[in-house]
Design a binder for these strands. Structure first.
Lengths: 267, 267
DNA sequence: CGCGTTGAAATGTATAGTCATATACTTTGC
DNA sequence: GCAAAGTATATGACTATACATTTCAACGCG
């Protein structure tokens, strides 16, 4: 009954993985891959204990750690549940555009101006991993704050990764919001720069050609391929990104109280 | 010998703090306040065990958690040490300008163009908390990539928070780098926008007045006051910020191996 | 003096429990 | 029928212990 690295059962060759590492990465994988969707119940400690043939402390520590990291939420008597990802990131506040506009106290609306299917070429390399051509959905969408254009969204969606998008009209939800709630993502890369808009873009946004614009390009990757690429062009002084940092990663104070967050009710 | 919330010794009134919370916040406080500088040895588990009159597991869990959060580094037989803050942030890559220029393969240099002491007025409100006027050091510094201006830095340093800055000439290290390595900080707020530079700034940067520029404003706060405010103006297409996110906070895989990081040697 | 051996220090992994606490569900009492 | 009380369950806090692993440092020996 002593503690000994799990020289993983069959073909022991790779780094000997400790039990708690295995449990951690198993659960983490299920969550990050989207196999366990948000709100789904995680096996209770006793189940995991049986499943991995270990003591309660061991699984408990793993779950506690996952809770600290925000991947799961735990509640006494109730159980543990897959947590809701922090909308985009707690640090760089690039929220849903609707939320942004709402924060300005202006009515939000959007208009899909273009919508076209095509196959990817060599130039859209950022969208594909290694594979050749994939079907794409190209969308141009203008976001309005009241009567004023707020942001131009030029997006490409990988239809191989998100086939449902082909049939979606994006009338209720903007493409960004739709994707965010439909597709589990793993990594979002932002590139932020200042540039003068192209003539065409300037015209749509109703600004002069030389007006400085904040251009945010985001590549969102899923488990094994890029899901979407988007370029958001904000007219210069209309927009500002805000980011807050602490020098250290935050050490969550609560061990899993989650008082304010509405607890998912599923089973 | 049972577990019972520490109804904190004297004047029990506030929320009953659990032992591990107390240990955690004690250590966290010492590190975040700068009282324990980077590399300083943290009491070994046995000491903490004695100090807080608890079992080894309890302190061990706290330390392990701090290690996961990156606040400390742990090494067998050696002990635990205050970790080095991740330069600015693992997510928004706004590194030292010197590093940025170096990455472009260009020789880096900088030139302090202005350096002036004054007292803060009502307009510099971002620098002060509630207090009235504080002594300031105003610095303008031009960063060069080869022969080309790369970035203009306009900075204000709170001399109340960093009195040593008054005597510093910033010949070896740029103001930013100097501050970063001298002053412990708690929070950095960035505001990022696109704008046309003012005539004066455009002249210094050697660009046309209408060239879009990426303007990054950063307020860095210490324990109880703002340390410095800086505005970095990058000529438009010369610069791009890059940020990567994952939907969840990263769950550190290693429990404290820290293989590559050079272990501080102090005692 | 240099080199390996050995011991001890410190963390790392894991077990097996106890008691506490929050909460859903069930039973009881009126 | 409905609320109060009780019970079961799942997590949370903590102890005490065992053994593993890594690495510093002291010792012994040629």
């Amino acid at each position: 009954m002593t503690a000994r690295p799990v020289r993983n059962t069959a073909r022991s060759k790779a780094a000997p993985m400790f039990l708690h590492q295995k449990i951690l990465s198993d659960i983490q994988g299920k969550i990050m891959s989207g196999e366990w969707e948000v709100g789904r119940r995680i096996p209770v400690e006793h189940e995991l204990m049986t499943q991995y043939d270990c003591s309660r402390m061991t699984v408990s520590k793993v779950l506690t750690r996952l809770a600290h990291a925000g991947l799961i939420e735990r509640h006494r008597k109730v159980g543990s549940f897959v947590g809701r990802p922090h909308s985009q990131s707690a640090v760089l506040d690039i929220p849903d555009i609707k939320t942004e506009v709402g924060a300005l106290g202006l009515p939000y609306s959007f208009d899909v101006q273009r919508r076209q299917k095509r196959r990817s070429t060599r130039e859209d390399k950022q969208l594909v991993g290694k594979d050749g051509s994939v079907p794409l959905l190209e969308i141009t969408c203008l976001h309005m704050a009241g009567a004023q254009p707020f942001c131009l969204e030029e997006r490409m969606i990988n239809l191989q990764a998100v086939p449902e998008a082909a049939a979606e009209t994006f009338t209720e939800l903007s493409p960004g919001a739709w994707l965010l709630r439909r597709v589990p993502w793993r990594l979002a890369e932002h590139r932020i720069r200042a540039a003068a808009p192209e003539a065409e873009v300037a015209a749509v946004l109703g600004i002069k050609a030389k007006t400085p614009c904040l251009v945010v390009e985001r590549t969102t990757r899923g488990v094994d391929s890029t899901i979407t690429f988007v370029r958001l062009t904000y007219p210069g002084n209309l927009h500002e990104l805000v980011a807050s940092f602490t020098p250290f990663a935050p050490v969550a104070q609560n061990a899993g109280s989650g008082s304010s967050a509405p607890r998912p009710k599923r089973g």
